[in-house]
């Protein structure tokens, strides 16, 4: 409550200050002195954010103990990955859509992704880990990246006619990606777990990635 009131007062006090910015004489000086993100081209702003998201993807693919995923969290990466997975896993052909009454798969993947991440996060918090809610969701979301890559490979393999050998290949790829995802997320979150309860915190993460990887491997029609 206290900080809400404080916030409000701040806004109210800011009102006359806002008028000062528009004073004509000051404007040019302001522009010259400070590096302001207000005036930069939109392209630069977007590129900077895209770069930040890209480096986070790289951190996931090459997991070493790095705190950048934790400190500067964003939800862009998870959102992109989630929509990508949901779209790729949806039955694409007309016949399949007719057969499955429109296919609830998009919603299914979406719900599994976000609800799963929320459950895992709440579990970590309940076990006494010190991490903020969105930090954990960011890490869990970004760590789906290896699985997304394995999905792309699987879709490419699915173009060819299916044999047992190809299924084994797909299986191995998905299992590797699953291990990778789990390993990366535990590497990032390892400091936040209470030290003696790591197994308890890792089990839901394991289950979460297991369900996603199983969705990928059970997706057989191209």
């Amino acid at each position: 409550m206290a900080d809400v009131e404080f916030h409000d007062r701040e806004i109210m006090n800011d009102v006359p200050l806002e008028g000062d910015i528009t004073v004509p004489g000051l404007k040019t000086q302001y522009e010259d002195q400070e590096i302001s993100t207000l005036d930069e081209p939109v392209r630069e702003t977007i590129m900077r954010d895209v770069k930040a998201v890209g480096t986070k993807f790289w951190h996931v693919l090459y997991p070493k103990q790095s705190s950048s995923l934790l400190k500067e969290w964003d939800l862009w990466g998870p959102l992109i990955l989630c929509v990508f997975l949901a779209m790729m896993l949806q039955g694409s052909t007309e016949e399949l859509n007719k057969m499955r009454d429109g296919g609830p798969q998009f919603a299914e993947v979406f719900v599994i992704y976000w609800v799963g991440a929320v459950i895992v996060t709440l579990n970590i918090k309940l076990l006494g880990g010190n991490i903020s809610f969105f930090q954990s969701i960011c890490v869990l979301g970004y760590c789906v990246c290896p699985l997304a890559i394995s999905l792309i490979i699987c879709r490419i393999i699915l173009i060819a006619s299916q044999t047992t050998a190809l299924f084994v290949v797909r299986f191995i790829i998905v299992v590797i990606a699953f291990g990778w995802s789990t390993f990366a997320s535990t590497a990032f979150l390892t400091d936040c777990h209470p030290p003696n309860r790591k197994a308890l915190a890792i089990y839901p993460i394991f289950l979460f990635y297991f369900v996603i990887s199983w969705l990928i491997i059970s997706h057989t029609h191209s």
């Binding site: 009454d101 719900v111 839901p204 297991f210 199983w214």
Partner: peptide, 24 residues
């Protein structure tokens, strides 16, 4: 949660269809 994952697995292999809502 493990039971839910197993049920999902079972439903998928059984091609269980849900009219409204999702398997999950």
């Amino acid at each position: 949660f493990t039971l839910i994952a197993l049920l999902l697995f079972q439903m998928k292999t059984a091609e269980h269809k849900v009219e409204e809502g999702t398997l999950m």
